[in-house]
Write a protein that binds this DNA or RNA. Sequence first.
DNA 1: GCATCACTGAAACACTCGTGTCAGTGGAGG
DNA 2: CCTCCACTGACACGAGTGTTTCAGTGATGC
Lengths: 177, 177
Amino acid sequence: MPSARETELLEAAYRYVLTHGLADVSLRPLAAAIGSSTRVLLYLFGSKEGLVKALLARARADELALLADIGAGPGVVRRLWEWLAAPAHRPLLTLWLEAYARSLVEPDGPWAGFARATVEDWLEVLKTSQPEDVRDTADGLALRTRELALLRGALLDLLATGDGERVTAALATSLMP
Amino acid sequence: MPSARETELLEAAYRYVLTHGLADVSLRPLAAAIGSSTRVLLYLFGSKEGLVKALLARARADELALLADIGAGPGVVRRLWEWLAAPAHRPLLTLWLEAYARSLVEPDGPWAGFARATVEDWLEVLKTSQPEDVRDTADGLALRTRELALLRGALLDLLATGDGERVTAALATSLMP
DNA sequence: GCATCACTGAAACACTCGTGTCAGTGGAGG
DNA sequence: CCTCCACTGACACGAGTGTTTCAGTGATGC
């Protein structure tokens, strides 16, 4: 269990990487920005890898909190998209994509399994939102995989172009129950 | 116009980054792996940034060659997906995703505009594949944006899970003309 | 009062990084 | 032959990296 100071610094570091990216973060600038020192970060998190792992877990916690908040049932896709498209969430989602890509390129290290884990998290939510009688059928699996692909692909487009209008219009047919 | 030696080394470096990733490549290991030296890479490409830019352009050339090859007309989505799902193309696509994410995190530098550029490239291909009477309508734009999202989201899933069967099944309804 | 413990500061270590300097190669053209 | 020019090797420079060592703090609990 983390100490008070540890969660405090983790929170500050999390805010830092949301705007600076996680890929090429380095201890000294990070420590300076959050009013700490490399010595303390190393003391609390053991190593840089430990810190990155903690930050990734922190980001995942945000994601899981969202999924719990969204709930299940009809209209999930619409609610998920509304959340994804909100400008306030863009830094988090950019960070998410960064970690996703990284975990594919470098399957070892702190990133390991991140991409696969989020696919499964989301598929699970979509699954519990399906009517019971299709949940365990091949059609059900195909349908939620398709919904996930649509959301993620739309997100990619949105993050690159910022054109929320066009992308939301493209999803419109899926957003009507 | 690049010299013979330059394109030769670029090709070798391209093969290297396809397996090692582009994000944290460094000159010395790269030079050693392709039988060159940092001195020569710097001489030919001016700087590391120049080299990265050349590599990014090289990857994009692969992508554009594909798009030209696929052609236009009915069945594009199916043909595009067949190409995306081919295991042989996975390194290229992982590299593509890496560059995509990077260009969002770090809008300056050699990566600039990569994400936006590929969105436009692909939308263009999908557009010329649409029947003329919808090409310039709002519906046409929404439809191809949707197709692109589906393809890209499916690709994300595939790269993370490797589960080509499930993802292809999810796309099935879109793959039938 | 004293020991314990979480935390912190300063400085150093052993790297790796991109890049610059200076000196050559070898072959092609005059 | 001699000159030019694309290319290459060896090495050093300054900056930045994660990590370690050593030496403290200040508060808490006995």
